[in-house]
């Protein structure tokens, strides 16, 4: 598989997934903020700061997602296992945050269920590809 001149081990499908997931999460974030505006206007929230907590969680999720995608892309391009491992740890947190919005938040819209499902499909594929590329990068350098 590897020739003498071309020893590139970065995974192209993984890179495509991370790139498109960045764009998808931007759309997801905007739509989720729209959904929160809609829910706050039309539905009665309990007064003990639930809405604020969920919004803070949404922004935290965006920060986690940015860090995850950054480390995934840089780790894949520079062929470092450690950065991809950090991406893997952060994707656990991102998956848990998404599952919170899917199952445990106060009101779940049908549109949100679909959007979060697509996000979880992305995270699942990226976990698989990140494990594969970690194993590939941890091997001895082919030359």
């Amino acid at each position: 598989m590897y020739s003498l001149t071309n020893a590139q081990r970065s995974s192209l499908p993984y890179q495509i997934l991370l790139y498109l997931n960045g764009w998808y999460f931007a759309l997801f974030f905007l739509l989720e903020i729209g959904a929160f505006i809609y829910k706050a206007r039309t539905l009665p929230y309990p007064g003990n700061g639930t809405l604020a907590a969920e919004l803070i969680l949404l922004f935290t999720l965006a920060a986690v997602e940015a860090v995850r995608l950054f480390f995934g892309q840089k780790g894949n391009l520079t062929e470092r296992s450690l950065a991809v491992a950090i991406c893997l740890v952060f994707s656990l947190a991102a998956a848990l945050g998404s599952i919170y919005f899917l199952l445990w938040q106060t009101y779940v819209l049908r549109c949100e269920v679909i959007l979060i499902a697509i996000q979880l499909v992305f995270i699942g594929f990226e976990v698989i590809f990140s494990i594969v590329s970690m194993v590939t990068f941890a091997r001895a350098t082919p030359f």
């Binding site: 498109l20 764009w23 998808y24 759309l27 049908r110 549109c111 679909i114 959007l115 697509i118």
Partner: peptide, 21 residues
């Protein structure tokens, strides 16, 4: 590339929403 991807995702989400309601 991202414009095409996001348009397809929007179409996908709306199709599933109509399928459910």
């Amino acid at each position: 590339v991202p414009a095409r991807f996001l348009c397809m995702i929007a179409h996908l989400v709306l199709t599933i929403v109509i399928l459910l309601s």
